[in-house]
Design a protein around this nucleic acid. Structure first.
Lengths: 191, 191
DNA sequence: GTCTATACTACGATAGAC
DNA sequence: GTCTATCGTAGTATAGAC
């Protein structure tokens, strides 16, 4: 075991917070999962809230580090951006199936805090990708294309516990989905 | 005030649970919101868990009472079913914007319980709508169409706190979205 | 049915020995 | 740094008067 105590706690916190969410998580569960004492957790991170912020920041960055470099990239065509979004997000979610629902659920409880920190709406507003969409389809509010594209990518992962059977090979289903979404997004941009 | 105490508690519970989720809700908050005493809440509903089940059942039914009568309706064409889904779900979510994220988030913490009760996968499997989709597009797993259609409908409501600015008139944006999704779903079924 | 008071437990956090 | 023990509080739930 090469990992430090601090790393063990963070790894455990990541697991428990993602599984249960902030409110349902017990710091004792994190301590047990990490194989250390409860007191030690507070020694390293001072409070449950602080430890959570660490995990949450990490997960928000993981989620938005895909879309942020793309939206304002002037070197890429719209076609390339869509391909890139689909490929990278589906790969990310296959490896981290809890990620999207975790971030969406927890941001909801602190919507104002993250809105003021992230400015995602401002970033999308007048972004390169939004201009590209508007050039192609000046008749439609671009937010409708953005939400439809992202919805097709994200929704299977969010609704998986309700809609999708366990027995299917979920990963390969999502792999084959890449090409489909690619066709569908270009189709709706022309419809 | 014509409402009974029981109704006042349920109304308050509905509000608080939907806002905060089960784990973060305090029964004291519900009691305060209802304008009654904490002891009275337990007198009527025995426990927080029981009260929550009541609200959760109500919300799950609210959510699935739209899709369930449609999927196996042999009188409707696929076209009519899609139109119906889009119209009814967007209307429902405009009036209840917290509903989809609440149900999805909370089911996640008790996925097995609801899966065994709801059987939604079984219902979709070999359903009338799935046969209609397969007739039209035997080359694609119908689950991809279902998740894309539902994703386009639901995702704006789920991602609203992150993606969409407050100042826009959200309801009218969703109203105009109905016709767009209608076009887009028929477009992807033909692409 | 409705209240006040309280029992009981679980949780987050800290004190203090090592 | 790491532990045991414990404090203080907040949470669910109940007892018992009215």
């Amino acid at each position: 075991m090469e990992t430090t105590t601090e790393e063990k706690i963070i790894t455990a916190a990541r697991k428990v917070f993602l599984e249960k969410g902030y409110a349902a998580t017990r710091t004792r569960d994190i301590a047990n999962e990490a194989g250390i004492n409860l007191a030690l957790l507070n020694y390293y991170f001072r409070s449950k809230e602080k430890l959570f912020q660490l995990i949450m920041t990490e997960k928000v960055q993981q989620l938005f580090s895909i879309i942020l470099p793309i939206v304002n990239n002037d070197e890429m065509t719209l076609e390339q951006k869509l391909e890139n979004l689909i490929e990278n997000y589906i790969n990310l979610f296959i490896l981290n199936p809890d990620l999207p629902l975790f971030v969406i659920s927890e941001i909801r409880f602190n919507a104002e805090g993250f809105k003021s920190r992230l400015h995602l709406q401002d970033i999308l507003e007048n972004s390169s990708i939004q201009r590209q969409i508007r050039d192609l389809r000046p008749d439609v509010n671009p937010i409708h294309f953005m939400t439809s594209i992202l919805g097709m990518i994200v929704f299977p992962f969010i609704s998986r516990p309700i809609l999708l059977p366990d027995n299917t090979n979920f990963a390969s289903l999502m792999e084959e989905r890449k090409a489909l979404i690619h066709n569908w997004t270009t189709a709706i941009l022309k419809s």
